[in-house]
Simulated scan of single mutants.
Amino acid sequence: MARFGYFLSCEEHGPVELVEQARMAEQAGFDCLWISDHYHPWNDQQGQSPFVWSVIGALSRAVSLPVEPAVTCPLVRTHPAVIAQAAATSAVQLGGRFRLGVGSGEALNEHILGTVWPEASVRLDMLEEAVQLIRRLLTGDQISHRGRHYVVENARVYTVPEETVPIDVSAFGPQAAETAARIGDGLITMAPDAGLVERFRRAGGESKPVAGGLKVCWSADRCEAVRTAHRLWANEQLPGELAQILPSPRHFEQASQLITEEQVAASVPCGDNPDEHAKALSAFVDAGFDAVYVSQIGKEQQGFFDFYHTNVLPRLRG
């Protein structure tokens, strides 16, 4: 049976609010947690972006659910040797309830140090080397490494978990899915794409878990929910590689002017129809996903959790 998790949005909420939402998610009957890792929000209306590793530390004490960053980019802004230490500490704090989600990132977050933002094929190559480096450091052994993209000298992570940390890899296209199958312990993607899942399975991911995520906007007023989703997350509807190459929230705001409320309403479950919400999550299950994570857009968090606890999760599990 598929698991259903809650996706904590660091772009919309501060650290205290995120921890409280995690508590509400556990009380509502969600199975697990994702949390986004951003340096910037996608636009100024979202308005937040706390340091994810501090929030994960707080989550380890606040809830008993598994936690995974979805996803961290260990390429440019943060060196993979540092991500290895952060992941090891998080795994120790969470006592076996931690997975590391990684991906090739977006210029929005990763270009801030003034480095060149590589093209997609180079980023995938960097990701493969970064994952290898993280796995070696998670053993607790001292290592030195001189690769194509990264150098590490005499590095050892002393605080490591008893069991290795599973590393899931984000992918949105066929080449990335094959890379995820080869280097990852699972696949993360954001659309119920059965073809992508099949490609991942054929490339070596036969028994590895596949997880997906989506956003919804619960409200008793559907029109208000559509307006909220459009105001905060119109960027979700931008096509192609724009999400990976636009460098600032201002640029996303400019591009999002092309997205209409009607486009958002057609793509995001909005309002309080439980069948619409359940259908959107079931599409992932039908496409072969093992876990689905849902994120509520906007401030109406308690109403969302009550609605899912009473009306949506029972439908999905029934």
Rank of each mutant, 00 (worst) to 15 (best):
V169F: 05
S170M: 09
S170W: 06
A171P: 00
A171K: 00
F172E: 10
F172D: 12
G173F: 08
G173A: 11
G173P: 10
G173N: 15
P174A: 05
P174N: 11
Q175M: 05
Q175N: 10
Q175C: 01
Q175K: 06
A176P: 01
A176F: 00
A177N: 13
A177L: 06
A177R: 00
E178N: 01
E178Q: 02
A180E: 10
A181I: 09
R182T: 09
R182G: 11
R182W: 04
I183M: 08
I183Y: 02
I183A: 01
G184I: 02
D185A: 05
G186E: 07
G186Y: 04
L187E: 01
L187F: 04
L187C: 08
I188L: 09
I188V: 10
I188H: 05
T189N: 15
T189V: 11
T189I: 00
M190P: 12
M190N: 13
M190H: 05
A191K: 11
P192T: 05
P192I: 02
D193N: 14
D193H: 07
D193E: 04
A194P: 09
A194R: 07
G195I: 10
G195V: 06
G195Y: 01
V197F: 03
V197H: 14
E198M: 13
E198Q: 13
E198R: 04
R199S: 03
R199V: 12
R199M: 11
F200I: 09
F200E: 04
R201W: 08
R202H: 08
R202S: 10
A203W: 03
A203Q: 14
A203T: 09
G204V: 02
G205T: 12
G205I: 13
E206H: 09
E206G: 05
S207M: 03
S207D: 15
S207W: 02
K208S: 14
K208D: 07
